[in-house]
Amino acid sequence: MTREVVRAIVYLNLYVELFMNSSELRTVANCIRRRDVQAVFEAGAGHVGGEMSVIDLLTALYFKVMSVNPKNPSDPKRDRLVLSKGHTALALYIVLSEKGFIQKEEIKTFLQPYSRLNGHPNRKKVPGVETNTGPLGHGLPIAVGMAKAAQLNRENWRTFVITGDGEMQEGSNWEAIMAGAQFKLDNLTLIIDHNRLQQGARLADTIDITPLRPKFEAFGWNVQEINGHDMDQIVNALDKDKIVPAKPTCIVAHTNKGAGISFMSDDVTWHHRVPNAEQYKQAMDELKKAAE
């Protein structure tokens, strides 16, 4: 195929994705879940619980909402996604591979020596990654800076950032929340993956920062609460029409850690546990059944 034809197909795919309906998005998310569980099983490591929790959000962003082009990953006018909960990098890698930023075959190198796909995302190694996350509480300040740059340039690209809910215990987030409101960054959307579990225990038994909505409202943000596994609700919440002028948006996405896999769902032990062969089979069977 000539370069022009390849380019035409890529653009056509991007165009088609914009018109994906929720059912098609659910199919994509299911496919990403299965690839994720397989990669964690094969690598013998990962953060499968938080990945199952965030995959529907990432799918909606990359296959419906965001304007990004795998053929030009550093387009200055692209929308930005910062995965602040960087330990769920594998989910992002799979999404990026499904979008064409990296080869799908590369996923099997996850965590292998010299792989570009280390346990937390690296922007210098993986096209489509915006910033190197891992330590928590870093993504939201960076996203505030990105949104501020767009505002200064009078450009209309959007910045999205996904944090965990436990991550909101980091003080740096609240510094950024104050700045986002002060700077009137209505081009900024924070999505909190509110699965109520952190690494070692339930949020409520650690430092309970719920309810999130009134805190963000008190800080001057526009807040929406959704079911973070309901594709219609996710897509609807991320629509441009939901932007409130001069206010940044926080979407509190109520999710389940381990979502989609019965024995992992809402179980604190599945933060970075690896399924054994029997559990792996069950997880894949359940996900396959859900896809039917």
Binding site: I142, G145, A149, L152
Partner: peptide, 26 residues
């Protein structure tokens, strides 16, 4: 005036915001 970004007394955010500004070409 527009190019003096004052994040308040918040150094962690100051550096994070700056990394984001650089991502946006600043």
């Amino acid at each position: 005036p527009e190019r003096l970004i004052n994040v308040g007394i918040a150094e962690q955010n100051m550096v994070g915001v700056s990394a984001g500004l650089a991502n946006g070409g600043k």
